[in-house]
């Protein structure tokens, strides 16, 4: 044991990471310029250089433990950077490519009779998306909310309630294609193997939507304070009216937010609709007969054509779809803020 206290040992100056960062960028820039690397390769090389140089310097000056700590800090920060990269790139590409495809005609024409490089549009797919998603919402919202009511107000610790909670969680992980196959199997069993209808897609989407609705509604109902319910019981109001008049209105903001988020999740679903609702070039207003194209399926079928015009339309569709999804997310957040019960 040393007799003097060793509180301070050699430490890198506070600006060391910044310095190493700049030097790394510069050092990687030299071969990048000489060998004509792209921006991407230059950045990757700089990060790698940084991750080697700073811990290396630290190892010499500060010792092994600090070097490991600096290495892990560097890795954690770059993990974050790398994860943001694809998102930014993807959104940039969608906006850049999509903007070239979108105009008034694109939004108001269907693909009926469109040949070769003629422009065509997504009108039929927009109609399909709205119809199928609305129908799915109509199916899943009552079931979802009533289930949440059961879990919070009636189920308690009963075995049934516990199983429902658990299986609802498990259901969130069902692959969407399986939901599509289920709807297909159902439709085929009832109407014969060649039959397709938009509502089949709604069934598949409901299966994917219900768990999200249940979970968010359940969470919101649980936040309603017990006092409110008791105040209502004390006035002689029966339980079911208490739930309808007190619990649900108090929680309604959060519940609606959850529903909108659930819609934004399923509106981008492709696989189940591809399987059960099929694809068509024309407008179809009847949910219960004939194929119906949705926006994601439109994107996929245009992509699958592998022609420049097809790609162009796919990007246009993707921009519209992303815009809808982001808009729904935004609406959900706003509604959540606006309808939140005022705090005392």
């Amino acid at each position: 044991m040393s007799s003097t206290v060793a509180l301070s040992h050699a430490k890198l100056p506070r600006w060391a990471p910044a310095l190493v960062g700049v030097v790394s960028l510069a050092a990687a820039g030299l071969p990048a310029m000489l060998l004509g690397w792209g921006l991407f390769a230059w950045l990757v090389a700089s990060v790698l250089l940084f991750l080697a140089a700073l811990p290396g310097w630290s190892l010499v000056v500060e010792g092994r433990r600090s070097a490991v700590d600096r290495l892990m800090t560097g890795l954690v920060w770059s993990a974050f950077g790398v994860a943001v990269l694809p998102l930014v790139w993807l959104i940039y590409v969608v906006v850049d490519q999509g903007a070239q495809a979108i105009n008034g005609e694109f939004l108001t024409y269907s693909m009926r009779g469109v040949i070769g490089d003629e422009q065509g549009g997504v009108y039929h797919a927009l109609i399909g998306t709205v119809f199928i998603t609305l129908a799915a919402t109509v199916v899943s919202v009552p079931i979802g909310i009533l289930t949440a009511v059961y879990l919070v107000e009636y189920g308690g610790r009963s075995k049934l309630a516990r199983w429902i909670t658990f299986l609802v969680d498990v259901m969130t992980g069902i692959p969407s294609i399986v939901a599509g196959l289920f709807a297909l199997a159902l439709v085929v069993l009832i109407f014969g193997p060649a039959f397709r209808m938009g509502f089949g897609g709604s069934i598949a989407l409901s299966l994917l939507m219900i768990p999200t609705v249940v979970r968010s509604a359940e969470e919101m109902f649980r936040l309603v304070p017990m006092d409110l319910r008791e105040a209502s019981y004390a006035l002689g109001v029966p339980k079911w009216r208490t739930i309808l008049k007190v619990v649900v209105p108090t929680a309604i903001g959060g519940v609606i937010t959850g529903i909108v988020l659930a819609i934004s999740r399923v509106i981008g679903e492709t696989a189940p609709l591809l399987v059960v609702a099929g694809a068509t070039d024309g407008v179809n207003f009847n949910l219960f007969d004939g194929r119906m194209t949705t926006l994601p399926v439109f994107i996929y079928s245009q992509y699958a054509q592998s022609t420049p015009a097809g790609y162009q339309r796919a990007w246009g569709g993707a921009l519209v779809l992303i815009a809808i999804v982001m808009l729904l997310n935004l609406i959900a957040r706003l509604l959540g803020k606006l309808l939140a019960p005022k705090k005392a």
Binding site: V5, A6, L7, S8, H9, A10, K11, R65, S66
Partner: peptide
Amino acid sequence: QSLYGPDVDPVAV
């Protein structure tokens, strides 16, 4: 020795 000196490492403290 100051605990809060500029080159003191809190880990060592």
